[in-house]
């Protein structure tokens, strides 16, 4: 038996749909993220040791495991993925079997990150892997779990430096396109996306590129084309984490 039809679907009660839509459109006040970041930066500024310790521990663990990429690599990748608007399940299912505990939450109540294990990557598999939702990490906010040994499934699946560099370059172009769009330069964003498409036709961040292109179409008033592309995307990637955003675009009049 599958999931029931969503109440937000076209056959749902319009009164219920209206209420649910209002919930889905809740947004923080303008510039809340920027002012929030200033506060957050001040808070974490008093915790430099924790962050540095984490970075050091991660780098050391990475070296110990023989990984090519230290913490800097994964950190850069997280930056890239975060700025694309979604974290792709880049390492999904590659580190450990579903359900196993690879790296438990740090045990201290204070932000002391004692044994941060580095993510291992296998880009050759990533290229064909969609951002499916795998087993969620054990990140209970209040959990107290003793650190376990870092999980590295296979030293054979090392990250070739060239592939990491390619991913960095792809992510940089994508970020550039997104920044252009956010600054109101939709044409510049499209130009950068065209370069991205030409340079990385089968890139790891293809889904993010496609979604951004749909956003650019919307921003330029071409909502019909945006919807056509959104439908095609959802057909190709029905379980994509971008689905919610695209369905909202499709629901717009």
């Amino acid at each position: 038996m599958g999931d029931p039809e969503r109440l937000l679907g076209k056959n749902g009660d319009p009164r219920v749909r209206a209420l649910l839509t209002s919930l889905s459109e809740m947004e923080p006040p303008p510039a809340a993220a920027e002012s929030g970041w200033r506060d957050m930066a001040a808070q974490i500024a008093v915790l430099p040791v924790a962050a540095a310790a984490a970075a050091t521990a991660a780098t050391q663990t990475a070296r110990g495991a023989g990984l090519v990429a230290g913490f800097g690599g994964p950190a850069k990748l997280i930056v890239a993925l975060a700025l694309t608007g979604v974290g792709v399940g880049v390492w999904a299912g590659l580190v450990q079997p579903k359900g196993s505990v690879a790296v438990p939450p740090s045990s201290a109540a204070a932000p002391t990150m004692s044994s941060a294990a580095p993510p291992s990557t296998r880009p050759e598999a990533v290229a064909s892997a969609g951002p499916e939702v795998a087993a969620a990490d054990d990140v209970a906010a209040t959990a107290d779990v003793a650190p376990a040994a870092p999980a590295v499934s296979s030293v054979k699946s090392l990250t070739p430096v060239t592939k990491q560099s390619q991913l960095d370059a792809e992510a940089a172009l994508l970020m550039s396109a997104r920044q252009a769009l956010h600054s109101g330069d939709a044409r510049g964003a499209q130009a950068t996306l065209n370069r991205l498409q030409a340079s990385f036709p089968h890139g790891v961040l293809r889904q993010e590129r496609d979604v951004l292109e749909i956003e650019v179409l919307q921003a330029t008033g071409n909502s019909a084309a945006a919807k056509v592309k959104a439908r095609a995307f959802l057909a190709a990637f029905p379980t994509s984490p971008h689905g919610t955003k695209l369905r909202r675009i499709l629901a717009q009049p």
């Binding site: 991660a58 997280i78 932000p111």
Partner: peptide
């Protein structure tokens, strides 16, 4: 802010076995 303080503590451990939004 409380959520992101937890994120700050745990981000180095995030392995992307799940999508970051799920996490």
């Amino acid at each position: 802010q409380k959520v992101f303080l937890v994120v700050y503590r745990k981000l180095p451990e995030f392995e992307s076995r799940s999508v970051i939004k799920t996490w």
